[in-house]
């Protein structure tokens, strides 16, 4: 198997706290990997470093043999990485539909120059994106909310919308930070179903999640981390019975 995304000895300190301590791992294309561990284990920091929101102190990450570390965040996102945030991030004062349309990458209308000189191309692309956005919203079941402000959605619907934004980005790698937290049981099923669909489309998905009962069986592989280090990794069943995992969750 080719190692599509490799992370080598990534370290990040906040003052004296080692949020990431020589963290290494790798991901293959098309797999769903769970990233679990107690609070403060460095899971979200890992996402932030990978996405370029934080700069690593040392170590490196490569996507498809292209270096990810020390590249500006927006360029990393354009290399095919989409993410959701634990504290939901959406543009709340614009419509649901516009949030999705915002997520399409490389829009010619987002460039001032082409806005002026390639006016008709911008318009064609914009109307194509409009249709695509509606299709995506239909797919996550939010088509009736398309015109509403994102702020008016329920919490679960907002999570679905962030997922819709990830779909719109057409990224190959999705980093999902607690997609199930605070979501009602019926909504959990919907979110999981969407995740399975995305996996079937060949997306690589890394999920941080605490609600292990619900999602554990959907993982191909689980990485357990604590204090910024990888403690162990393996199939969901192995991880479930690993004494180190049990100890960490009980202590």
């Amino acid at each position: 198997m080719n190692k599509w995304l490799t992370v080598e000895k990534l370290s990040k300190n906040f003052g004296g706290v080692k949020a990431l301590d020589e963290f290494s791992c790798h991901f293959e294309q098309g797999e769903v990997v769970g990233l679990i561990g107690p609070n403060g284990a460095g899971k979200t920091t890992f996402f932030n470093v990978l996405g370029g929101m934080l700069e690593a102190d040392s170590g490196s990450a490569q996507l498809n043999k292209k270096k990810l570390t020390s590249i500006p965040a927006h360029r990393i996102a354009n290399m095919g990485i989409a993410r959701t945030f634990q504290k939901l991030r959406l543009i709340r004062q614009v419509s649901v539909l516009e949030n999705v349309m915002l997520s399409f990458r490389n829009q010619s209308g987002e460039n001032l120059v082409s806005l002026v000189i390639r006016w008709s191309k911008v318009r064609t692309q914009e109307s194509e994106n409009y249709d695509k956005a509606l299709t995506i919203l239909k797919r996550v079941g939010l088509q009736e909310k398309a015109g509403d402000l994102a702020d008016t959605l329920s919490y679960g619907q907002q999570k679905l919308l962030t997922l819709a934004c990830c779909i719109a980005s057409d990224a190959d790698l999705l980093l999902l930070d607690e997609p199930l937290a605070g979501v009602s049981p019926s909504m959990i099923e919907i979110v999981l179903e969407k995740l399975r669909e995305l996996k079937n489309e060949g997306k690589t998905i890394v999920v941080i999640e605490h609600n292990l009962e619900a999602i554990m069986d959907d993982f191909d592989r689980v990485i357990f981390m604590d204090s910024g280090r990888k403690i162990c990794e393996g199939k969901p069943d192995e991880i479930r019975n690993d004494p180190r995992v049990i100890e960490a969750y009980l202590k």
Binding site: M53, H74, A77, I91, V94, L102, G109, L115, S169
Partner: peptide, 26 residues
């Protein structure tokens, strides 16, 4: 400007810069 994809990004920056970055906007 405001009724274009460019203007949409401007509003996204006003509301949440980090989110705009994560969507690949410079």
């Amino acid at each position: 400007i405001t009724h274009s994809p460019y203007g949409r990004v401007l509003q996204a920056i006003r509301e949440d810069e980090t989110f705009a970055l994560s969507l690949g906007k410079n």
